[in-house]
Design a protein around this nucleic acid. Structure first.
Lengths: 132, 132
DNA sequence: ACAAAAGATACTAATATGGTATCATTACTC
DNA sequence: GAGTAATGATACCATATTAGTATCTTTTGT
């Protein structure tokens, strides 16, 4: 039960760092600060800019900036980018086999728990991480 | 974010079924009822009996029974067996690199969410699943 | 022109998950 | 006490996900 994976984690930290800087930030700088493998960091940042979380600048003295205000970026969006559908517990028994699906208690309880977690994740913004 | 994996899911359903029966239950019966691959089901049941959740009976007319009352078996125990340490979010940055670890806000928030989920899981017993 | 940045894309490695296969052991039944 | 129907133990295989590399292209400031 790993809530967030490594790339999400790195992405969040990179975003937080960028949020605190005034100027554009290069991969080189992020690699230095976070101690993450460079090509991996690059890939992550490229994804983030493709997904309109970051804005990128090419060429010499290029780099990355936030595209949105830190108040407008939430953990769950980033998780969604790197971990796909942060989705409700799928039932593994096929539809026609699960005895009382729709009323399945297990399913219901798991869904409740996941909804709680998702609700919390939806509320945590980059701004709230950077402030603390 | 899959809260429970397939083997945990099957295990829980098997346990629930067994809980409702008076007599010992064979793999054959469970396979029929749940529609799960037989060798996989066997493996799962063997693990459960090794972990003292089930009691097994060898020989002809053998099978499985619960070893504990359904009130005494909790989802989280089963998750623990099949998913290992259902543990708190590990920080992926090495100790000496993470800028302000110990005070890391991200870490703290994730931990909170996971603790909530774990708390809920700790309270769901087989008895409560079977009743519903 | 050149150097230093990001963009794009394809590939590889490691780990976790979801299974199979097979042989040994036990115990009821005849 | 032999046969059969159950579980025990163990080793192996397949697939998916995660983590990471490699390489070549494009852009742009100097």
């Amino acid at each position: 039960m790993k809530l967030i994976t490594r790339n999400t984690d790195y992405a969040l930290r990179a975003i937080c760092y960028i949020a605190k800087q005034k100027n554009v930030v290069t991969v080189t700088e992020l690699v230095r600060v976070l101690g993450v493998p460079r090509p991996f960091m690059r890939k992550i940042l490229q994804q983030l800019s493709k997904e309109k979380i970051l804005k990128s600048y090419k060429g010499q003295s290029g780099g990355f900036k936030l595209k949105l205000f830190p108040e407008k970026i939430f953990i769950i969006q980033i998780m969604h980018i790197f971990q796909g559908q942060v989705s409700l517990s799928e039932c593994f028994l096929k539809k026609d086999i699960c005895p009382n699906r729709g009323k399945c208690v297990l399913r219901k309880k798991i869904r409740q728990i996941e909804n709680n977690a998702l609700g919390q994740l939806r509320q945590i913004s980059i701004a709230s991480l950077v402030k603390g």
